[in-house]
Nucleic acid binder design. Structure first.
Lengths: 338, 338
DNA sequence: CTGAAAGCGCTTACAG
DNA sequence: CTGAAAGCGCTTACAG
C-alpha cells in the first residue's frame, strides 16, 4: 500500500513536507502543495489510521455502548444509534459499536486500549455499572439517560417527570377523572431504569394534585405476555376512560388488543403514549404521544462529547446535565370521556 | 499511560520478552512469564490498539456497512446488526458501524485507511455501488443480500424464490384460489432490491403452475400511505381470500387496518408474512410468516469473513454463495377459505 | 518555506 | 530461553 513516503518521493519533497502539506499545519509554497496534492491523487494515497492514531493520540473514533436487554424494546434503541452515528460522522468521527452484555468490561477494553477518543453510553441506569469504568477512563464520555450521580459527567435525557405531568394534565383537561398508566416492566425499574419511576411518580403526584384517580401498573415487554397483561389491566379498571402508555411493546400491541375488545379510540378510550414520531410512523401507531426525540438526544450527546474531547488538558469546562422538554404530538387519540 | 516498556522494567526483562510472554509466540520460562503477568496486573497494562495494528497490520475490527433508506424498514435492519456484532465479538473482533448515505465512499475510507480487517455489507442491491469499491479494497468482505455478480465475493441471503413458492403453496394447499401479494415499495426494486422481485416472480410462477390467481402489487413503507394503499388493494380484490405480505411496514399496520375493515383472520382472510420470529414477537404480529433468520445470516457472514481474513495470502479458498432455506412459522393466521 | 530526525507503542526477525 | 534492534506509517518539535 502507498504511504506518505511514496507521496513525498513522487512530489520530490521530504516526508515532513508532504505531511504538512496535507494537514495544512504550516505554511507551504503553493507550488509544493500542488505537487503533493497531485501525487496524492495519482497514487490514491489515504493515511494509515493506526499510524496516525499512534502519532497523534487521536483515533477519530467514538465508542457507542448500547445494550439490548431482553426486557426492553430494541427498535427504540436504533433511533438513538442513528442520531449518534450521523452526528459523529458530521464531526469527522467514526463509531465503534459495542453491544456486549458486560458493558463495564467492554468500556474498559476500548478505552484502555485507546481505540476511541470518547464514548457515548446509551440507556444509562440509575447506578450504572459502566460509570465507575468511565470515571477511571482516560477519555471523556457522554450519557443518554440520567444516573443517580452525575458528578463529572455530561448527561442528556428527556424530562420524564414533566412528561408524566403532561400526560395527566392533557387528559384531565379533557374531563377524564380515572386513568390507567402502563409503564415498562417492573424489572426494568429493579435493574435501575430510573426513567420508569421518574415518569410514574410525577404522574401519580400530578393526578393527586388534580384530584383524579390514576392506576399505575407495570406492563410486559414481549408477546404473548403483553397481550394477556393489557387485557387484565383493562378488565381490572372498567371505569377508566384514559390510558397512558409508557411502554413501546404495549403501544405496538395496543391496536390489536383494542380491536379484539371492540374498543374504539378515542370514543371508548383516550390513549396517550410516549414514543418518537419516527416510531409512530414506522409502526403505524395512531395514538397521540409525548415525543421522546431520540435523534436530538443522540445529537446533543455527541456534540458535547466532541467538544469536550477538543478541550486542552487542564482546561475542563463545567459538566452539563441537560433535559429535553417533552412535547405532545396530537394524533387524535384523545377526546372528552363519554 | 503504562506501556509495554513499563511492564518490561517492572518484570526485569526486555520489551521483546514482555511482548512474547503476552502473546505466547515463543517459549518463555515460567518464572519470567509469572513476573510479566504480575507486572501486567499490577500496572493494569492494556496494549495500545493503534500501535499493535501498525505493527501487525491487523486491527481486529470489522466494518459493518448498513444503510437506512427512507423507503425500507429500519427495525428489521437492527437484527442483522446484532447478529453481526455478537458473532464478531465472539471471534475477538470489534465493529465499526458505518451508516453513511454514500456507502461506496465510506467503504473506501475505512478500508484504505486500514481501520478494519474486513467488511460486512448489509442490504446489498443487485448492482450495488459499494461492490466496485469492495473489489478494489485490500481487505475481504462478506455480503448479506444477493448481487447480480457474485464473482470473488462471499454472499449470504435468504432463498427468496423458495419463500415465494412456499407462501403460495401453503395457501393453495388450504384451498385458496385467489391471492394478493403485497411487496416492498416499487422504488425498492428500482433501486436494486432484488429480493423483492425474486420472491415476487417465483410466487407468480408458482401460482400459474398451480392454476390459481395471484395479484402482485407493490406496497408503501410509511404511514399514512401504507394504510391507504392496503385498503385500496383490498378494495380492488374483494374476492381474494389470502394475503401474502412481503413488506414489514404493511405487516405492522395490518392489525389496525383489518380491524377498521371488520375483517377477522383467518376466518375472513388468511395471511402469511415474511419476517423474523423476533420481529413478530416484538411487534405483536399475529400472522404466520416465513422466517427470515437475520441473526443466522449475520452470523454466517461474519464467520466466513473472519475465516477468509485468517487465510494466508495467496491461499484463497473458493468463494461461497449460500442461501438459507425459508421456514414457515405457523401462528394460526391461515385456514381454508369460506 | 523546507528537511532530517525523533518518537508514538507495539511486534518480530536476527543473534546469541 | 532471552535481548538489542529494526520497522510499521505517521506527526511534530528542532534546525536552518
Amino acid at each position: 500500500m502507498v504511504n506518505i513516503g511514496d507521496v513525498a518521493r513522487a512530489a520530490g519533497v521530504s516526508r515532513s513536507t508532504a505531511s504538512y502539506a496535507l494537514s495544512g499545519k504550516r505554511a507551504i509554497s503553493t507550488e509544493v502543495r500542488d505537487r503533493v496534492d497531485e501525487a496524492v491523487k495519482a497514487l490514491g494515497y489515504i493515511p494509515n489510521a493506526g499510524a496516525r492514531a499512534l502519532a497523534t493520540s487521536q483515533t477519530m473514533v467514538l465508542g457507542l455502548l448500547a445494550q439490548f436487554l431482553e426486557d426492553e424494546f430494541a427498535p427504540a434503541m436504533l433511533q438513538y444509534i442513528l442520531g449518534v452515528t450521523d452526528t459523529a460522522r458530521e464531526l469527522g468521527y467514526d463509531i465503534l459499536l459495542v453491544t456486549e452484555a458486560d458493558g463495564a468490561h467492554a468500556l474498559r477494553r476500548i478505552t484502555d486500549s485507546r481505540m476511541v477518543d470518547g464514548v457515548v453510553l446509551l440507556n444509562v441506569a440509575e447506578h450504572d455499572v459502566r460509570l465507575p469504568a468511565l470515571r477511571e477512563a482516560p477519555q471523556p464520555g457522554a450519557l443518554i439517560g440520567l444516573p443517580a450521580d452525575c458528578a463529572g459527567l455530561d448527561v442528556f435525557d428527556l424530562d420524564f417527570p414533566e412528561a408524566g405531568r403532561m400526560m395527566v394534565d392533557h387528559l384531565h383537561a379533557l374531563g377524564h377523572r380515572e386513568l390507567v398508566l402502563i409503564s415498562q416492566p417492573e424489572h426494568v425499574v429493579t435493574r435501575g431504569g430510573a426513567y420508569v419511576w421518574r415518569l410514574r411518580d410525577a404522574a401519580l403526584e400530578q393526578a393527586q394534585k388534580r384530584g383524579i384517580v390514576l392506576h399505575a401498573v407495570f406492563g410486559e415487554s414481549r408477546q404473548p405476555a403483553v397481550g394477556r397483561d393489557v387485557n387484565a389491566v383493562l378488565d381490572a379498571h372498567p371505569s377508566a376512560t384514559g390510558l397512558l402508555v409508557h411502554n413501546e411493546a404495549v403501544a405496538a400491541a395496543l391496536p390489536s388488543i383494542l380491536h379484539e375488545r371492540g374498543l374504539s379510540v378515542p370514543t371508548d378510550l383516550s390513549v396517550v403514549g410516549r414514543y418518537s414520531d419516527e416510531f409512530a410512523k414506522t409502526f403505524s401507531l395512531p395514538f397521540s404521544s409525548i415525543e421522546s426525540a431520540p435523534d436530538r438526544l443522540g445529537r446533543m450527546a455527541v456534540r458535547q462529547l466532541v467538544r469536550r474531547i477538543g478541550l486542552p488538558a487542564g482546561r475542563e469546562e463545567p459538566y452539563v446535565v441537560r433535559f429535553i422538554s417533552p412535547e405532545l404530538v396530537d394524533r387524535g387519540s384523545t377526546a372528552p370521556p363519554r
